[in-house]
């Protein structure tokens, strides 16, 4: 993956298992967010961006001849800073299904309840669905954004530091939610929080200067890393 002449990712070859949480760690600028964006072609929007190689999802190359809207429906994304739309909670959630042509009120109600329930925030919000989403706390906004990503029933959920801007309690809720969600979704998460990676992920990939240095079972990687650079990074000897 290149930005113009600059090669941002090299020799990436990993297999991401379904229904597990895969954490991407590494120092700033090592390519983990860039890698995450290659998985739903968010980098298409960046000028001068070029990809070599393939990203296979269920055996199909997502850089082949595919419908990009369908890809983004199958691969949802949640960002570091919660980014609710400036509209009501209900409309935030209904937005995706509406753009995919769902008009039936009862069906939309259903989707709103199910998505908010799946994102563990239905009980908190059920009585204020018509309030502005911007009136919610940061942690609630983030769970709302997760709920919004779930409305179109994706298969994969990409999370770019989803708790980076949240307090410890909201962080706990998102972490519990992620563990719960992996039953239904495959989660790939960029995190700068090592403890978070050890707490919730099944596999961890350590990125350095655009390469994956080590990719292993999380417990193994954090207890007996095979590569000296992984050990040095996770123990805080550099980075």
């Amino acid at each position: 993956m290149f930005y113009g002449d600059f090669q941002a990712l090299k020799n990436i070859n990993i297999n991401i298992p379904a229904n597990e949480i895969t954490a991407l760690i590494g120092p700033s600028g090592c390519g983990k967010s860039t890698f995450l964006k290659t998985l739903n072609r968010m980098n298409d929007l960046i000028e001068g961006c070029r990809i070599e190689g393939r990203v296979l999802m269920d055996g199909e190359d997502i850089y082949g001849n595919i419908d990009i809207n369908m890809l983004r429906k199958r691969v949802g994304m949640v960002f570091q800073k919660p980014n609710p739309f400036p509209m009501s909670i209900y409309d935030n959630i209904a937005y995706g299904p509406r753009t995919h042509g769902v008009r039936n009120k009862a069906k939309l109600d259903d989707i709103v309840e199910r998505s908010l329930t799946d994102a563990a925030i239905w009980e908190e919000l059920r009585d204020r669905l018509n309030k502005s989403a911007l009136s919610l706390s940061g942690g609630q906004q983030q769970r709302l954004c997760i709920a919004r990503a779930l409305t179109v029933e994706p298969e994969v959920l990409l999370m770019d530091e989803p708790t980076g801007a949240l307090d410890p309690i909201s962080t706990n809720k998102i972490e519990d939610l992620a563990i719960d969600l992996k039953k239904m979704y495959t989660i790939i998460m960029v995190t700068h929080n090592m403890q978070q990676a050890t707490r919730i992920s099944d596999n961890t990939a350590f990125f350095l200067l655009g390469e994956i240095i080590e990719y292993d079972n999380t417990e193994k990687l954090f207890s007996t890393p095979a590569d000296g650079r992984t050990g040095d990074y996770i123990t805080g000897r550099f980075g």
Binding site: M194, Q195, T198, F222, S223, P225, T230, G231, I234, T235
Partner: peptide, 9 residues
């Protein structure tokens, strides 16, 4: 320090 890897060991 919430040690990991060799520190934890």
């Amino acid at each position: 320090q919430q040690p990991v890897a060799r520190d934890l060991r």
